[in-house]
């Protein structure tokens, strides 16, 4: 196996791509990802590649065979905690990334503690009630944070209907708003990844100082 580049070499390469000033903003930031399924695992891969300094990864669940069609896990990781499996995969992409993991269910009574160190929070759950709980909780208790949530990315609808919308000054919503997995339309990798990419892109835009979707 060939040896991996040094931390300095990787940092220099990112600076050459993004410019020193912008890369410093990415490297200096902490992003929390709540839920490590189709949205969260794909958001994490994008942000790890962009050179975000620190990721807080939160999920209570384990990798299941039914996750492999859209989530960034491997068949030999079935049964692992998603936090541990994703950390392993991200470290292979970006070995010097600072990763914090919490293998817990996010609830109203622990969300402040779990998320207070984040500059930007990505809501990436699959359950509609969990999504609403997190969004209400963050907007009520952590209103100075940026929050990027997702609703509506199931099925084989058009890629072009996935959008990012700025709902409040610091609250953004990605997705088509209506395609519900409960309607038995399935979830396919590209459309979930599109929505995750919208969320990750909004993270990078906010960090760059551009707050419009």
């Amino acid at each position: 196996m060939s040896c991996i580049p040094s931390k300095e070499e990787m940092q220099r390469t990112l600076e050459a791509r993004h410019g020193k000033e912008l890369q410093a903003k990415f490297t200096g930031s902490t992003v929390a990802i709540c839920g490590l399924g189709g949205l969260g695992s794909n958001i994490a891969v994008s942000l790890a590649r962009a050179g975000i300094g620190r990721l807080i990864l939160i999920d209570f669940d384990q990798v299941d065979i039914s996750n492999l069609h859209r989530q960034q896990y491997r068949a030999n990781q079935i049964g692992y905690c998603k936090t541990d499996a994703l950390k392993e995969n991200l470290q292979e992409i970006s070995p010097y990334l600072d990763i914090v993991t919490h293998t817990v269910r996010v609830e109203e009574n622990n969300l402040t503690e779990l998320l207070q160190d984040a500059d930007i929070i990505c809501e990436a759950f699959d359950d509609a009630e969990a999504k609403a709980m997190l969004v209400n909780g963050v907007l009520e208790k952590l209103h100075m944070k940026y929050l990027i949530a997702a609703s509506g990315m199931a099925g084989l609808g058009s890629a072009n209907s996935i959008k990012t919308r700025r709902v409040m000054e610091r609250f953004y919503l990605c997705g088509d708003g209506v395609s519900d997995v409960a309607d038995d339309i399935g979830l396919v990798a590209p459309r979930v990844m599109l929505c995750a990419a919208h969320q990750a892109q909004m993270v990078l835009r906010i960090l760059s100082g551009n707050h419009e979707p």
Binding site: F125, G152, L173
Partner: peptide
């Protein structure tokens, strides 16, 4: 007023 409605999937 804006009511944000969440649907399942992620």
């Amino acid at each position: 007023v804006e009511i944000v409605n969440f649907v399942g999937g992620g």
